[in-house]
């Protein structure tokens, strides 16, 4: 009896802690969403709701939003085209258990393990003198691809390792399928859950990337997160909030899709 009541007490204390942590994470998000549609946040909600700030953001920062979408999609295409074949190589080379494959995977992870600032500086020092490249969106795309590539390769590799790819391919080969036919007809369809998970991950990360982009951007290649930093530093709180609101609405569908993919395919997606 005493023990049961103590367990109940423990449960409620832990629940309270969990709710507090949740409040810590969510309350600022809600506040910023509210501030983005409030006439004057300092006065409070009584000043009335407005879409003025959202419109203001749209007028000033519209190009950054389109740019971020374009870069994220381009990044997705490049990482898929380059990353899926690489994952295939890592899964199949010497039966998928070679030191070389592990070393490659390790190397590929480096742009994530090393701060984005270092990667960005390295890119600037090496390619900064090519003005046209330096000032184009391509320069930013390169940074994003380096950073997001492992997030495409790893889920695809995980799926390939868990499906008996070698066996399936052998069956296809015995029926007369060539390399290309096997890659498109067996490998790709089998790896699809991993590709889907990786694709969502890459897009989300690319839309939110700041550490590398901040050093690489020029006024003409400003992306959404760079614009956010700019608005936080130089605009009133309501404008920064409205801009954040737009950003949240862009990533929410991606997050929901990610949740859905993880639940339906059981592929582990991790940020």
């Amino acid at each position: 009896m005493k023990r049961a009541s103590r367990n109940a007490l423990q449960f409620y204390l832990l629940l309270l802690l969990t709710l507090l942590v949740c409040a810590f994470l969510i309350v600022p998000v809600l506040l910023s969403m509210l501030a983005g549609v409030t006439e004057n946040f300092f006065v409070g909600l009584s000043s009335g709701f407005t879409l003025r700030w959202v419109m203001a953001v749209w007028e000033t920062y519209e190009p950054t939003i389109w740019r971020s979408i374009v870069i994220a999609l381009a990044c997705l295409v490049v990482t898929a085209l380059v990353g899926v074949p690489l994952a295939y190589m890592l899964a199949r080379y010497r039966g998928g258990n070679s030191r070389l494959a592990r070393l490659l995977e390790e190397l590929l992870m480096m742009p994530v393990a090393v701060p984005g600032l270092a990667t960005a500086l390295a890119l600037i020092m090496a390619y900064g003198q090519y003005r046209a490249f330096r000032g184009s969106l391509l320069f930013i795309l390169v940074g994003h691809v380096l950073f997001t590539l492992p997030f495409m390769v790893r889920p695809v590799l995980a799926v390939m390792q868990s499906s008996q790819l070698a066996l399936l391919e052998e069956a296809a080969a015995s029926l007369g399928a060539g390399y290309w036919q096997r890659f498109c007809g067996v490998v790709i369809p089998n790896a699809m859950p991993g590709i889907l998970a990786g694709a969502l991950m890459v897009t989300t990360l690319s839309i939110g990337e700041f550490n590398i982009t901040w050093m690489l951007h020029t006024p003409l290649t400003m992306t959404l997160p760079v614009g956010l930093a700019d608005s936080y530093a130089s605009m009133r709180l309501e404008v920064g909030s409205a801009y954040t609101l737009i950003f949240l609405f862009m990533i929410i569908p991606l997050l929901i899709a990610m949740q859905w993919v993880t639940q339906t395919t059981q592929a582990r997606v991790r940020l």
Binding site: V29, F210, F247
Partner: peptide, 12 residues
């Protein structure tokens, strides 16, 4: 939910 926030948004 905050998993996908970039550092700038966390700062905000």
């Amino acid at each position: 939910f905050p998993l996908a926030f970039p550092g700038v948004v966390v700062g905000f």
